[in-house]
């Protein structure tokens, strides 16, 4: 087998020590002639919960997808935990990174998708154990124990033997959260994770996320239209417009006394 399946030591959680965990440095992303992110700079400190807000098309999803390596930046660099995400230094020069390097850095990042994207051919338990076994090299028992703990956390212990399609959307999304956490990532990316759910199922998922935000020291990067939730969990709110951060600060500041006209407009439209 490839090096992928050999046990790799898990990254020690650095805790909430305020060191810089994510850095975007002059990141530009274009789709054809549409420049979505224009020389974007921003940093996120370890353990912080950061919410990205902004109008539709402002590039929030693009930022999360760049971090998850589902997209490649056209210019600029992204660092996670001090390591370049998509680049490697070779002979003092920065070159596009190989698959192996990207994989190593990416292990620190987990993502929950709007559409859950659970593996429909696997039962709930295996959805959660699949990556810990085949990426981190955990043995089956250890992975299952970890999965059971996480299912307990998201309140789905009795459903571990079901297929995703046998669950409600809210339950599926909670499984997806458990699946992401099973990799013990330092960063959790959440892209509108409740917007595909029936309204009555939203609260359950948000409660789980609140719980995680308050009881773990995981760093969160969150795109949401649930402003109350954002206010509850965020340390920082970044307001995006046209691929730039136009304003940032504590939720109290952004939600109650925004400085920028665009922020005021946006908030009055969504609140």
């Amino acid at each position: 087998m490839s090096a992928d399946s050999t046990p790799s030591k898990e990254t020690a959680n650095p805790g909430v020590d305020g060191t810089e965990l994510i850095r975007f440095d002059k990141v530009t992303k274009r789709f054809g002639s549409n420049t979505v992110l224009d020389s974007l700079d921003f940093t996120v400190s370890s353990g912080k919960h950061v919410t990205l807000i902004g109008p539709s098309g402002s590039g929030k999803t693009t930022i999360l997808r760049l971090l998850m390596t589902l997209l490649k930046p056209d210019e600029g660099t992204i660092k996670v935990g001090g390591e370049y995400l998509m680049h490697e230094e070779k002979g003092g020069k920065l070159v596009p990174a190989g698959e192996k390097h990207i994989r190593e850095v990416r292990k620190n990042i987990g993502m929950v998708f709007q559409q859950f994207n659970l593996f429909p051919n696997m039962k709930v338990l295996r959805n959660i154990t699949e990556a810990p076994v085949h990426v981190l090299g955990l043995d089956k028992d250890a992975a299952e124990e970890r999965a059971r703990e996480l299912l307990d956390l998201v309140g789905l212990t009795e459903h571990l033997d079901k297929y995703p399609t046998q669950l409600s959307g809210g339950q599926q999304q909670r499984v997806a959260i458990a699946r992401a956490l099973a990799m013990r990532p330092q960063v959790l990316l959440l892209d509108e994770v409740t917007s595909a759910l029936d309204p009555e199922l939203v609260a359950g998922v948000l409660d789980v996320l609140r719980d995680i935000a308050h009881t773990t020291d995981i760093t969160m990067l969150c795109v949401t239209h649930e402003m109350n939730f954002a206010r509850d969990i965020s340390d920082d709110v970044l307001m995006f417009d046209a691929g730039r951060v136009i304003e940032s600060g504590s939720p109290e500041k952004i939600f109650t006394e925004p400085e920028h006209e665009r922020t005021r407009e946006f908030l009055s439209a969504v609140l």
Partner: peptide
């Protein structure tokens, strides 16, 4: 097979081979 399946496999860093054998092909087979 929906693109989201590939994306989830990437997000979990599943090795390429494993993505094919455990995620994509079983769903394609159906």
């Amino acid at each position: 097979v929906p693109p989201g399946q590939w994306e989830a496999a990437t997000a979990l860093s599943l090795p390429r081979r494993r993505t094919w054998t455990a995620v994509i092909l079983p769903q394609a087979f159906r």
